[in-house]
């Protein structure tokens, strides 16, 4: 859940229409109008400020106060909890645990956002507030959750994001053994065993993940 007191606003006079703010928006909140200026969808904006940072004309996009605070949160309690638990396990995430250190959006909320209609990474961000902070580290969790829910996303042509879900548990055992021999201090074998064991069960202990 995130609280939004601000929203991005484009100064139509100042906007050059370069479009660089469009692909950098994690929530898909910006679109170009007739290729001349950018427009922000308030209902999708998560106030990450990436567009403001990206804008080469420094004052063309600014942060303005919303009329009232908005919460971005997806309630999971009205959904089938066993389904959420199963999908979290499939995604390699824990239901009650944050998938993002910034927004602290939980695994179950991320899955719930998809079960309630999010079909793209941008949809998940717009509904949950994921990637509203640093925008970096939770990215793979979004792809994992979409994949677990059976949604295959194609990498956009402009490469604004690339679906990447590779994890230690995906590494074949024989490769793990080779790594363990060559780089024992990385403790890859020990961690791999714990992670693959965990992935095989949906009944995980809170706080047990690394």
């Amino acid at each position: 859940m995130i609280r939004l007191g601000f929203v991005a606003e484009v100064d139509q006079e100042a906007c050059s229409g370069c479009g660089q703010c469009v692909p950098i928006c994690p929530a898909g909140a910006i679109r170009m109008v007739e290729e001349t200026s950018a427009v922000v969808d308030e209902d999708r904006c998560i106030d990450c400020q990436s567009c403001i940072d990206r804008c080469k004309k420094e004052n063309a996009i600014s942060r303005v106060t919303r009329p009232s605070e908005v919460l971005r949160f997806v309630d999971h309690t009205d959904l089938d909890q066993s389904q959420i638990k199963t999908l979290c396990a499939k995604a390699g995430i824990l239901p009650h645990m944050p998938v993002c250190g910034c927004s602290r959006t939980t695994g179950q909320e991320t899955i719930a956002a998809i079960l309630k209609g999010a079909e793209t990474p941008e949809d998940v961000c717009a509904r949950t507030g994921l990637r509203s902070g640093c925008g970096i580290y939770c990215a793979t969790r979004i792809f994992q959750a979409l994949e677990a829910c059976g949604i295959e996303v194609e990498n956009p042509p402009d490469r604004r994001w690339i679906k990447l879900t590779l994890g230690l548990a995906d590494v074949p055992e024989e490769v793990v053994e080779r790594i363990d021999q060559a780089y024992p201090s990385c403790c890859v074998g020990e961690d791999w065993k714990r992670l693959t064991k965990r992935r095989s069960t949906s009944d995980k202990k809170e706080g047990s993940h690394v």
Binding site: I136, G167, I179, C187, R194
Partner: peptide, 20 residues
């Protein structure tokens, strides 16, 4: 590396094994 790689580096490997 790109942000997606930074993401798996931090999230999908454990505290010691991520260093591989």
């Amino acid at each position: 590396v790109r942000f997606e790689t930074r993401s798996i580096y931090h999230m999908n490997f454990a505290n010691r094994s991520c260093n591989f």
